[in-house]
């Protein structure tokens, strides 16, 4: 009897530690954050002492020009970064999807930028963008061009951080796209080749549509992650000059630590989560559509 009891309890014993840690370390803090967004709260107060202010934090933020600018910078940054990285990454994958020596070496080296600490990536790029000792301006000077104020001009700063992000994350898309390409059903490609489809036609009508489900998920993961980029920008520009590179994550951390407005920072976090949730749902629905289309193409190709 006791043995049966133990047997029945086993799954719960296996699950309990993970469940406990996630509740204490993740779910409770997130719930707490939702609650904190309705408070007027500064870091020296215990949460019980903070005043309940209802939706005031949310309204304040909507009327705050700096917050709106920051949200705009975040959306611009993410949109550009995702589009450019998808185009380059998928393009390279299509180009390099063949049996050449060294492709595995390339993949290994390509992971490096993603594995290294974002702080260090920021450091490297800040050094390269350095107005006098940086490699970019030194090269420009050698070739007789004017040096570019990479990080100190508000027009250039956003471009500079976008370039750094593209360097760091295009390999991610490349690796996923290559994996998707190599798992395509050989029969469909074979059928298309026998029917006399040219290289371009194969890409446009067979490969891309079949890869689409994976590509949408890839773009979604990259989009989510691009909202989390913080350390690289913190090290390179700390949000400046002005507010030109202050993405939302950075603004949240500054509102909490510099302006000491925890309630406001929590409300901002909620806005950020809402934006992310909306984008995720849209991509998810789109993915379902694309998936059924890919299925149809696969069947067609196999029947033909």
């Amino acid at each position: 009897m006791a043995a049966a009891q133990i047997k029945r309890m086993t799954p719960y014993m296996f699950l309990a530690p993970a469940a406990a840690i996630m509740i204490v370390g993740l779910l409770y803090p997130i719930g707490y954050m939702v609650y904190a967004s309705f408070l007027d709260w500064n870091p020296s107060q215990r949460i019980g002492e903070a005043d309940f202010v209802g939706l005031r934090n949310y309204v304040t933020l909507l009327n705050d020009a700096a917050f709106r600018e920051s949200a705009g910078v975040t959306l611009t940054f993410s949109a550009i970064v995702v589009v450019v990285e998808m185009v380059i990454g998928v393009g390279l994958a299509l180009l390099l999807d063949r049996n050449i020596r060294g492709i595995s070496v390339l993949r290994t080296l390509f992971i490096l930028p993603m594995m290294i600490a974002p702080i260090v990536v920021g450091l490297m790029w800040r050094y390269m963008y350095h107005p006098s000792v940086g490699i970019f301006n030194q090269t420009l000077k050698e070739w007789g061009f004017e040096p570019i104020p990479w990080l100190s001009d508000s027009g250039w700063a956003l471009t500079s951080i976008i370039i750094a992000d593209i360097w760091q994350w295009t390999p991610f898309i490349f690796i996923l796209a290559l994996a998707a390409l190599q798992s395509l059903p050989r029969t469909s490609l074979e059928a298309a080749r026998i029917d006399g489809a040219s290289g371009w036609q194969q890409i446009v009508y067979i490969k891309l549509p079949l890869m689409m489900p994976v590509l949408v998920v890839t773009a979604l993961l990259r989009l989510i992650d691009s909202f989390k980029v913080l350390e690289v920008i913190l090290v390179m520009t700390n949000g400046g000059p002005g507010l030109s590179t202050e993405i939302l994550s950075l603004r949240i951390s500054r509102t909490a630590s510099e302006f000491r407005e925890l309630g406001l920072a929590a409300a901002m976090s909620n806005y950020l989560l809402l934006i992310l949730l909306t984008l995720t749902v849209i991509m998810f629905v789109y993915n379902k559509v694309v998936e059924s289309r890919a299925q149809a193409i696969r069947q067609q190709a196999e029947e033909a």
Binding site: W41, S269, L272, L273, L277
Partner: peptide, 16 residues
């Protein structure tokens, strides 16, 4: 969970 940026955890984690 992947969607939650670390910056969002900053305020509650600090407080709790």
């Amino acid at each position: 969970m992947r969607m939650v940026p670390p910056a969002v955890l900053l305020v509650p984690v600090f407080g709790i």
